[in-house]
Structures are given as C-alpha cells and as structure tokens.
Amino acid sequence: MSSSVLYDIPGPQARRRTLISSLVAAVIVAVVIVLVVLRLAEQGQFSGEKWGPLVNPFDPSFAAVWNLLGQALVATLTAAGLTLVFSLVIGTIFAVTRVTASRSYRWLVVGVIELLRGVPVVIAIFFAARVLPEVGISLPILWYLVIGLTAYNSVIIAEIIRAGIASLPRGQSEAGYSLGLTRGQVLSTILLPQAFRVMLPALISQLVVIVKDTSLGFIISYEEFVRTANIIIQTLRNPIQTYIIVAIIFIAINYSLGKLAEYVERRLSRARTTAAAPTHAGAVDTGAAGGG
C-alpha cells in the first residue's frame, strides 16, 4: 500500500497532472513499441513464412513443429518433476541433518550446503555430464540434468524447510518433548509436517526456478525447449518467432505456478491464525533469484 503513501490522494490539479504524464508516458511507450514493430516488419519478421509454421494450423510444418515442442514440454516437465522429487527428499534430509546434527559435524553439513549454494547450476549440470562418465557412471542425459539440478535445488529447499521449522513456535516442539517423544519423532510428526505446510508457497516458487533451469539442458543436448527451438530454427530459420513462442510457453507455465503459490499462501494465511504466519524468509528470495 506504500504506493498510495508515496503521494497524496490526488486533488483535481494533481489528477490533471497525472493524467497528462500518463498520456505522455503512454505516448512514449506506444512510440517505442511502434518503432520496434515497424523495424521488425521492415525486416520481414511478421511474414507468414516465419510465423505460419508456429501459429497457422494449416501450415504444412505446423504439426511437425508442435510435435517437437510437445516432446520438449514432456522432456522439460519430466526433468522438472524428477528434480522436484529428488530435491525434496534430499533437501529434507539436509535440513533435518542440519537441525539435529551434533556440533561436532554440523560444520560439515553447513559447509556442504554453502558450497553447493555457491555453485552455478549450469556448471553443476556440465560437471555431472562430463565427470560422471569419466568415473564410469554412464547414464541417459536426462539423469545428468536431474543430478545437476538436484545438487543445487536440494540445498535451496533444505534452507526453505529449515526456515519453515524455525518459524514454528517453540511450544510445538516443547509440547512434543513433554509428551515423551524423541527428537526424531518431534521432527517427523510435529515439526516437518507443519514446516512443509508453512513453506508450501515457497516450495512452489522454487518449482518455477527448477522449470526455468531445465532449459540449461541444451548445454548437454537434452532436448528441452531451447535445444528443440534450435533444431526448429535450423530448418525454418525464424529464431525470433520461435523464441517468442518458447518464452510465451515458459511464461504461461511459470506465471500459473506463481499464481498458484499466491493462492496457496492466501489460503494458508486465512486458515492459520496462529502466531506463525508464513513469512517470506530470506531463503525464499534467494531461491527465486537463482533462476536461469
């Protein structure tokens, strides 16, 4: 609501000024858009030859192109899904180990987490694809991509879960202990279920990052959207058009996921009236920015 705090509720004069500057801004934006469009049109970027195969169902290449894009979608979702599952499992293990580790080896867990957090995802993927075969582990490329993505995302998810556990009121675990539960029982039956719930929106947001990062599979020639786009472009020679379509697909998927996260968050905050309202911890921001 700060945007309304930054300026007064406008009076007639200010409203006029806002209107004028709105018009000016709108005109500038419109001019820029028109210039870009004109320039692209001049270069023949709106020709049916370039767009037809992508948008016209009667174009002879339409079916083949969308068949390839469909396969790319399956490839992307497969990689993203597997990464999510593995990251959740390994991330939970990381988080639990970090929380329960005795001081003697906690530094080791923290060290591994910090190390993996500092590694660029693309290097993790490249590393998996090039080094694992060298040591005799040869897998389909899908798995190199999943391993690379999991290495990074599991530590992010570990941090999200840890933040979730930390956000729970102390009374929760105290109540558990007072019932005579062990540390492990408190974690698995009381803390983790609540942490997952609290952190569900953040976890969904992280899924956006994972979906985006699957695009890095093109580096190891995994046929996700970017690699597929390159193959389409080889024949159709319409890079701008193909990338616009690919970008729209990504935006559609990720925007929906983002909205889903917001919806879940709203429902959760409505349902929960306890002190531990879900907060956007630092870990969440880090995760969202980590996308590729």
């Binding site: 934006v29 695009s215 970008a247 590729g292």
Partner: peptide
C-alpha cells in the same frame, strides 16, 4: 502514480522473471 509506467514495470518483471535466462540470451 502513472499507470502506463506501472504497466511497463509490471510487464517487465512478469516476462523476465518467468523466462529462462538461456531463452532471454538467444532472443
């Protein structure tokens, strides 16, 4: 307070936060 500018900012964020960097680079 200028709606067209707000729209530009919002559109930018929506597009670039949801598109992979690799796609942005190629585009």
């Amino acid at each position: 307070p200028v709606p067209p500018l707000r729209a530009v900012g919002a559109a930018w964020v929506t597009v670039f936060r949801n598109t992979p960097l690799a796609v942005v680079l190629f585009a």
